[in-house]
Design a protein around this nucleic acid. Structure first.
Lengths: 186, 186
DNA sequence: ACCTGAACACCGTTCAAGT
DNA sequence: ACCTGAACACCGTTCAAGT
């Protein structure tokens, strides 16, 4: 007995599909999670998903937005701590999601929307890091230093370094940023 | 008219299949290159490939070994230059192959042989970098500093930073390594 | 507007059969 | 030992049809 009329508003159902996808994508990874199984987990037929999302990549973006919003929200709880702690916290947070980090990188070439999402993600993260510094980085090395931080954090996340190694590397990153920022003392 | 008897030694045919795969994998990427098309380029049926390689990942490893050997061989031509130049050279070299870098990271979880290859790759690269230093890094920060170099290089490769940005970042990396190495002056 | 059953085109891989 | 034709199980996606 198919109930075709919306028992829920569209946004709510969309969120349900994203929630189902999120659980499976995080547990099994993007490639190993067929639309099939996501639909099943959400109690719909596979093609129903295509009413709410253009394709599997758009569904992935829904999940990514969800995860990013959660990380940003949770960050406020640690925003007072020293920068090195915050970076280590971020690494641990992203580690829970590392399989999707790799997936995003792979799919940048295959999907323009994923490419845009990835760019937005890095801008967001750069802003977050920069806001934690006592004063802005000198324009000259600004981009370069933020790139180094981003790449090292990504490396720590995707090549799962153990927690203590990751903490000390974050310390080194934070020290470097703060040394540079306070050297503009003039 | 199927010629079934080996007109060539096994290793040679294997190399031909790898060469065909290499061209297509680099041009179109792993996901967008069906076994189908690789076979076609090598003038065999798809299942013939499975006589020489267990699966698509083993074929990928064949291509990766090929590329790595070539990079190591080409490196000898620049081994005399300053470290920062060598790092920038490496970034440009890996950039030609960046889609496979992402592929490897994604497939680590899906294929144990790829995982092993990836580990070997990082060991090889660490050795290469370390050999260029005037003296060995202090044991205390040894692993950490090599990790930073590896991750930043990977970041530069996969997030295609422009060549000048990449060069200056490599300079920063090299300066840091050399400062640390010569601080053990005792 | 929302959802389904059935199909499509494609994919990696296998297998029985040939030489 | 080496290779093929044909098939298998699976995949993302579409479409005509239902409510």
């Amino acid at each position: 007995m198919p109930r075709n009329r919306r028992p829920q508003p569209k946004a709510e159902k969309r969120a349900e599909l994203i929630a189902a996808a999120r659980t499976l994508l995080l547990r099994d990874g993007y490639d190993a999670t067929p639309m099939n199984r996501i639909a099943q987990a959400a109690d719909v037929t596979p093609n129903t998903i295509y009413w709410y999302f253009r394709d599997k990549d758009e569904l992935l973006i829904g999940v990514l937005d969800d995860l990013l919003a959660e990380i940003l929200a949770d960050h406020s709880a640690v925003a007072g701590r020293p920068l090195s702690n915050q970076l280590a916290w971020l690494v641990e947070r992203l580690r829970l999601v590392s399989s999707l980090v790799s997936t995003v990188h792979t799919r940048i070439e295959l999907s323009p929307p994923i490419d845009e999402w990835h760019t937005r993600f890095h801008i967001t993260m750069n802003d977050l890091v920069e806001r934690q510094l006592p004063r802005p980085l000198p324009a000259k090395t600004h981009d370069q230093e933020l790139r180094i931080v981003a790449y090292v954090i990504e490396g720590l996340v995707t090549h799962d370094a153990d927690a203590t190694a990751s903490r000390s590397t974050c310390k080194a990153l934070a020290d470097r940023l703060q040394t540079i920022a306070s050297a503009v003392q003039e």
